[in-house]
Simulated assay, not measured.
Amino acid sequence: MGIHTVPVGKKISDRKVRNLLGLNSEKYGRGLICYTPTEKIISHLLDGANSYIMKLAPVDVVMKVFRYNPETIVAFNRGAWRETPSNESLGFWCHLPLNADGHDALFDGRLDRSNPDLRYICRQHERPAAIYHWLVYAEPNILGGLSLVMDRFSSTRLRGLPMYCIAATPTAYNLFLKSGFKQGASYKHWVNPNMMTLVPPDPAAGRPIYDSYVPSPPDPKKLGIKVAHTVHELMVAASIRGAAYVGERMLPVYDDMDGNDLSATHLIGYVGDEPAGCIRIRYFADFVKLERLALIPQHRGGLAFKLARAAIAFAQMKGYSRFYGQASHPYIKLWKHLGFTQRSGEGLTHVTDEVYYEIDLVTDQPAEHLTPHSGGLVLVRREGQWDRPGAYETWGEGQ
């Protein structure tokens, strides 16, 4: 089966792409409800869809899948849940939650999409390896119900899964291109140019680099950064430094824990959900000192550069344009790539035999930075989240 959403000939407006996984259900799903349908509702919906979709799977096949896993079909309509069909508009979304073997079978041809073998489909409450959107049918006036269905795919169990479909008609193809799908799908060594893939939106899009970490990102290798706001996060930064400085470089514990942690800002870098690096920012009258850049050995590389850039951007947002640091020889190249210059001289030695060279950077004053006139509500927001409503602005919502 394929995907179809509106009667043939119904024009889809030339609007911008709105990713299905990013739809605001409070806006688009207003007045609509989604639920697990009865078998009477499913039969009624399949009868309606059969008028527009050729080679639709037989009712008994759809029922077989539904009885095996009731989560595979979601119905939506205006008003309240219903047990029997009515003359009002109805829509439904059928998907196949594929296990690992089913994911392979989708690409190697073993999965018969018109009559799927149940051994490829997950049971209810299991986490699938992939989602194949088997059949979507809805009349235009209730298309907003798709946003309610997509809310289900944002749960922890289903978030971040690869999603595929095959559009049944040119109209459906056009709609799904405008809903975040792209033409073509690949998995392992297989490529299917006729399948479509839903590319999840980046939840950190538009955020500053120092606020780019989002829990459970779709890409488990995605780099993200956030300010350490809690004692727990401060301990995470200390653990990373302990592994990098004390454990690996044999720095004495009390030289790493130098008493300056509570007067500084700490940024933590993540690879997926794994804390993997950190950097410390200390403030002086007209400059900041960037220090304690540390990374877990297996995650060294691009994260170090991103942490350093984030620290500079964070301090610039506070109005600083002059930066100072001390870097050992292996890291001089990284800092120079960011615009730092190395001071002349033989460098400094601390407790270890390693030589540290003083480095400086002066940037232009950022056009937009925090000032006493940035607004009272802005200045009491969480550090690094000045572009997002704070606790005082969201308190009482939904009360």
Results as ranks from 00 to 15, higher is better:
363 T>Y: 04
378 V>H: 00
184 G>A: 12
197 T>E: 14
373 H>T: 14
76 F>K: 01
289 K>A: 00
246 V>K: 05
19 N>H: 15
285 A>V: 11
281 I>D: 10
119 R>Y: 07
99 N>F: 12
347 G>R: 11
62 V>A: 14
191 V>Y: 15
231 V>N: 01
130 A>H: 03
238 A>S: 08
314 F>H: 11
264 A>V: 11
245 Y>S: 03
79 G>E: 13
335 W>Q: 00
214 V>Q: 07
145 G>D: 06
120 Y>R: 01
138 A>K: 00
178 K>R: 15
177 L>A: 01
349 T>D: 05
42 I>T: 10
23 L>F: 08
87 N>R: 12
321 S>P: 00
201 P>S: 08
127 R>W: 02
311 A>V: 11
109 G>S: 13
391 A>I: 13
263 S>A: 10
192 N>Q: 12
78 R>T: 14
331 Y>G: 12
257 M>W: 13
55 K>Q: 14
39 E>T: 14
350 H>S: 07
118 L>C: 05
332 I>C: 09
169 T>H: 01
173 Y>P: 00
326 Q>N: 11
348 L>T: 13
92 F>Q: 12
58 P>V: 08
19 N>K: 12
339 G>I: 09
391 A>K: 06
138 A>E: 09
38 T>P: 08
150 M>V: 00
358 E>L: 08
311 A>W: 04
283 Y>S: 05
190 W>Y: 15
81 W>N: 04
251 L>K: 03
369 H>K: 13
29 G>L: 06
169 T>W: 01
352 T>Q: 07
136 V>I: 15
268 I>R: 03
106 L>Y: 12
128 P>N: 06
49 A>W: 03
393 E>K: 12
118 L>H: 07
73 I>R: 01
4 H>T: 05
98 L>R: 10
29 G>D: 05
234 L>I: 02
87 N>D: 14
136 V>L: 13
146 L>S: 00
202 D>W: 02
158 L>A: 06
36 T>Q: 15
42 I>M: 11
123 R>F: 12
22 G>K: 12
83 E>C: 02
271 V>A: 02
329 H>N: 06
85 P>H: 06
242 G>E: 02
238 A>M: 09
1 M>R: 04
22 G>L: 11
156 T>W: 06
369 H>G: 06
53 I>K: 07
57 A>S: 15
69 N>M: 13
119 R>T: 15
237 A>M: 00
154 S>N: 14
95 H>P: 03
164 Y>K: 02
286 D>A: 08
233 E>T: 02
368 E>I: 13
